[in-house]
């Protein structure tokens, strides 16, 4: 999985490409914990994310929880297969998905 970060003031866009699975989600968690402090706006670009597992869901939820305290988090361009997972797990109710 590739993680591309674009920072803009206190805003950060993270674009994910590929598979957010048990192994790659660990990298993402590391990135998040490093980047989130001081952030007010976090945007996930999921246009090229094709695959997600429960470990991936956990990290996305973690990001959401962290951002709830200090700002706002949005997920964009979620692919149908991934969206289905968000829906199935009831997570979509708690996320801002555009």
């Amino acid at each position: 999985m590739e993680i591309v970060k674009t920072a803009e003031g206190t805003g950060l866009t993270i674009a994910l490409e590929g598979r957010l699975d048990s192994i790659s989600s660990r990298d993402l968690e590391k990135e998040l914990r490093a980047s989130v402090p001081g952030l007010t706006e976090l945007v996930f670009e999921f246009e090229k994310l094709s695959y997600i597992t429960s470990a991936g869901l956990r990290v996305v939820s973690l990001a959401k929880k962290l951002m709830n305290k200090q700002g706002h988090m949005v997920i964009r361009h979620v692919q149908p297969d991934v969206m289905e997972v968000f829906d199935a797990t009831g997570l979509s109710a708690f996320l801002d998905i555009e």
Partner: peptide, 16 residues
């Protein structure tokens, strides 16, 4: 429907 704050992800894998 559990709030995000209370979720444990252990069970979600098998559920998925």
């Amino acid at each position: 429907n559990m709030e995000l704050e209370h979720r444990q992800y252990g069970g979600f894998g098998i559920f998925m």
